[in-house]
């Protein structure tokens, strides 16, 4: 039997909202340590990796590892029947479940839904736990804003790191521009900008994906950008007390 109860069901809804335009059908994996998900977008340029630790749930039980194939679109239809303040419980009964049960609980209502599961043949990738040569932490809303602004000018965005900070730049048909974000150690943690640069990087990415990734900014006030030259960048949103959502994006490279 598998059971996982979110004290804050709104959080689960935010996670689904954050990934729904990136991935369509996903395998949700549950085991004794928690729930995880890994899926690529249809063009295989981006990878979504979610980890929710067992300790972050109000209640968690998983006796045997299981894989639940879900349509994100259908999952969202069911989640629309819950309130943002509901507690949400996910549950399966059988060893090889064909449905995933949802209980939505508020002060004055309990709802039950069953979502049909699918058998998905999905590629599972081994993502190495590497050290990145540049790691930048910055406010997630600021990153969202920069991507939106520069995305107007060109479809590719450049990211350059140095000891001084991080620079975003674009070159398009209409002209070019750059935005430098300064390091600061303000007392408000959500406004802090930190750069750990062992080696500077200069990378280019399709801004369209960043704009999709930025839907996850509702999960955390800070975003962590980890980069190495000519490697996929990782954008990480820490989900407080529960785990993290990591979004990988393959770079554009000179041929």
């Amino acid at each position: 039997m598998f059971e996982a109860k979110f004290e804050d069901g709104g959080l689960f809804k935010k996670i689904v909202e954050a990934i729904k335009e990136l991935v369509k059908n996903v395998n949700l994996e549950a085991n004794g340590t928690g729930i995880s998900l890994q899926a690529m977008d249809t063009s295989h340029v981006a990878l979504v990796a979610l980890q929710l630790n067992e300790k972050g749930f109000k209640k968690y039980r998983c006796e045997k590892s299981l894989t639940m194939g879900l349509s994100i679109e259908n999952l969202q239809k069911i989640l629309k029947c819950s309130g943002n303040d509901d507690q949400i419980t996910l549950r399966t009964q059988d060893e090889e479940p064909t449905t995933l049960s949802f209980t939505f609980e508020s002060k004055n209502r309990i709802s039950e839904f069953q979502l049909n599961l699918m058998s998905l043949d999905q590629e599972q990738l081994g993502v190495p736990d590497t050290e990145y040569s540049s790691v930048v932490r910055m406010p997630s809303n600021e990153f969202t804003k920069i991507c939106r602004e520069l995305g107007n000018i060109n479809e590719a965005i450049g990211i350059e790191t140095s000891k001084e900070g991080i620079k975003f730049y674009v070159k398009g048909d209409i002209g070019e521009g750059q935005v430098s974000v300064k390091i600061n150690d303000t007392e408000k943690p959500e406004e802090r900008v930190e750069c750990e640069v062992d080696e500077p990087v200069n990378l280019s990415f399709a801004v369209r994906y960043f704009n999709l990734f930025n839907k996850a900014s509702a999960l955390s006030s800070q975003v962590i950008l980890s980069m190495s030259q000519d490697q996929p960048l990782v954008i990480e949103y820490i989900i407080e007390e529960m785990g993290s959502l990591k979004l990988y994006l393959a770079p554009k490279i000179n041929d």
Partner: peptide, 14 residues
């Protein structure tokens, strides 16, 4: 000219 890479070029199949 820069070419868009894909994720499986970097991460291996498990």
């Amino acid at each position: 000219l820069k070419t868009q890479q894909s994720i499986p070029n970097f991460f291996t199949d498990m």
